[in-house]
Write a protein that binds this DNA or RNA. Structure first.
Length: 566
RNA sequence: UGACCGAUGGUGUAACGGCAGCACUACAGAUUUUGGUUCUGUCUGUCUAGGUUCGAAUCCUGGUCGGUCAACCA
């Protein structure tokens, strides 16, 4: 007995508030200790990193406590929803590594049941058909400080409301002419209790139910009931739904339901610096051509992150580190970047690629000679295999790796300086050739044959450079991605300013670089690390037979640092 | 100035009446065939005023600050 308590206390120390709630419920035998959560996206856009947090939470909780998670599409507003979004969402959830309880569910599966529930409430005199206009209803609701006024239709006969509702369903009315309202309390301090709308008329084609319905339930009249029908135990949503909870409970109470009682809990949604997270705004970026689609690698969408080289594990880790609480937060993107670096560092194959090439010629290396030098594919992996890298007299190195007049702490190549070429020899720079504009076109060096990689040598160098053999190099089209926004809080700019004014015009650059032949054979491995340049991944796109890489410029990488130093 | 939610380093998040801890960031050092990785260290924190208590980040009261709510969106 004592031992159990101690264990509880020990594990408790690291539990978030939702885990505490669930453990309490299990301990108290609530729902026989069953846990069934749900992830309920509206299919009106692609999932973003904020949804990923919710997914990890809902699925993670169920996994931790031996439960299941439903995937339910909250498809109650046909004008905004589509099958394209449904499919994209399913793909993203699967890609993140989670399995929902089959089958996939839809709020629209319950339209008939909801309709019957509505009849029940009308008969109980807890709902009525109102024929005020949207504007009148809104006005009648009052303000948070002042009570609203009751609708003149509020106390109409039950039979009348029943008939009206049927007429609504039978398309006897145009949009806006009738709504079904719950009869609660027009003076409630909670605006959502002032006779909220349950059904509205929409003569719209639904992506699943087609034209079967012309009345559609509102969120509040669909969500809790869907939870109940499915037997959801813990219905977890974001903080802005806190005021809805009272209504959520009211519907369930007044329906006199006797099954598993779902409970709503709220957590703070994710906010990220330099990132817009609202679906509405992301849709604008897509529609107005700021990006090339929902899955543009600069987008904070799950599909965008995927194309950018993020792994499912890194996103799950991020969700874990971000934590769960009820206070507003603004997470630094550097945490997300840390998570992908941490993952890729352990798993990503390495290769050398030169993005901004300048030719380096080793004058004392025999013309026409080629050597195959062994290189480690992944130094973090003890079992890593080796690849052979061709070496010859003419190489490309990074333009930034050479400075004619180096500052004091510059460890790389400069006139008279010595550096090691990774996996190869130590070289010394003797001279440079420039074109008429003063741009360096060739760097001439001497190599020391007795410094070949693996040999003992007394020569000490501070710098090591990556390189590719000019004649063997594979040409690669490289896409460099920077942050989409220039400001930390694009969601929160000053009044009168548009978040789109802060889109970074340089967020995408396409350049041609040169890579080892190895990268060609390693296709289509996901997640590359290029020596000293940073992490790359292969994009799905491949045009003109060229290799396309995503470069995550915002990831920590010394290449960018050097750029800043100069 | 209605109701509700919240307030712990630059950023997140723990501590549930008993030593304010962890991670990210930043900076410094060590290692390094890339300035990466790895390792070590440093800086910085309980919104405020009272109260309860041997003892308060934690409980109570007032204040301050931030957020949410008046769609026939979700």
């Amino acid at each position: 007995m004592e031992k159990v308590d101690m264990n509880v206390n020990e594990t408790r120390a690291s539990l978030n508030f939702l885990e505490q709630i669930i453990e309490n419920d299990i301990r108290n035998g609530v729902n026989n200790g069953q846990v069934l959560t749900r992830f309920p996206p509206e299919p009106n856009g692609y999932l973003h990193i904020g949804h990923a947090k919710s997914i990890c939470l809902n699925f993670g909780l169920a996994i931790k406590y031996g439960g299941k998670t439903n995937l339910r599409f909250d498809d109650t507003n046909p004008t905004k929803e589509s099958t394209e979004y449904v499919n994209a969402i399913m793909e993203d959830v699967k890609w993140l590594g989670f399995q929902w309880q089959e089958p996939v569910l839809y709020a629209s599966d319950y339209f008939e049941q909801l309709y019957q529930y509505a009849i029940y409430l009308i008969k109980k005199e807890k709902a009525y058909v109102c024929q005020m206009s949207a504007e009148e209803i809104s006005k009648g609701r009052g303000t948070p400080q002042t009570p609203g006024v009751e609708s003149p239709w509020r106390n109409r006969a039950v039979e009348e409301s029943l008939e009206e509702l049927e007429k609504m369903r039978n398309a006897d009315y145009r949009e806006g002419e009738r709504v079904l309202r719950a009869k609660i309390d027009m003076a409630s301090p909670n605006m959502w209790m002032r006779d909220p709308v349950m059904y509205r008329i929409m003569h719209a084609h639904h992506h699943r139910t087609g034209d079967a319905w012309c009345i559609y339930p509102m969120y509040d009249w669909a969500h809790g009931q869907s939870d109940y029908i499915e037997g959801i135990t813990h219905s977890i949503c974001t903080l802005e739904f806190v005021p809805h909870r009272q209504l959520y409970d009211w519907f369930i109470d007044n329906l006199d339901l006797t099954g598993i009682r779902p409970r709503q809990y709220e957590f703070a949604r994710l906010n990220l610096t330099y990132t817009v997270m609202s679906k509405r705004k992301l849709l604008q970026l897509v529609e107005e051509g700021f990006v090339n689609g929902w899955d543009d690698p600069r987008m904070p969408t799950v599909s965008g992150l995927r194309r950018r080289g993020y792994t499912p594990a890194s996103i799950r880790e991020f969700a874990e580190r971000v934590g769960v609480a009820k206070r507003e937060n603004l997470i630094d993107v550097s945490l997300l970047e840390f998570c992908i670096r941490e993952d890729l560092n352990k798993t990503a194959p390495r290769a050398m690629v030169v993005i901004d090439p300048v030719k380096l010629i080793i004058d004392n290396y025999p013309e026409g000679q080629t050597e195959e030098l062994p290189a480690v594919i992944n130094p973090e992996d003890p079992d890593s295999e080796k690849r052979m890298v061709p070496f010859s007299r003419e190489l490309y190195i990074e333009r930034d790796d050479f400075m004619e007049e180096p500052p004091k702490k510059f460890f790389r190549l400069a006139p008279g300086a010595e550096v090691r070429l990774k996996y190869a020899y130590i070289i010394r720079c003797d001279s440079v050739v420039k074109d008429k504009n003063g741009t360096i076109t060739e760097i001439h060096c001497t190599y020391f044959p007795d410094t070949k990689s693996g040999m003992e040598t007394t020569r000490k160098v501070k710098g090591t450079l990556h390189w590719v053999s000019a004649q063997h190099a594979v040409e690669a089209e490289v896409r460099l991605y920077d942050r989409l926004f220039r400001v930390p809080e694009p969601d929160n700019v000053e009044e009168g300013q548009d978040f789109k004014d802060f889109v970074n015009p340089d967020s995408l650059k396409v350049v041609t670089g040169y890579g080892e032949p190895f990268i060609k054979s390693a296709l289509p491995a996901q997640g590359f690390q290029f020596e000293r340049i940073g992490y790359f991944s292969l994009d799905k796109d491949s045009t003109n037979g060229k290799l396309i890489f995503n470069r995550t410029v915002t990831l920590k990488d010394s290449w960018a640092k050097v750029g800043n130093q100069c």
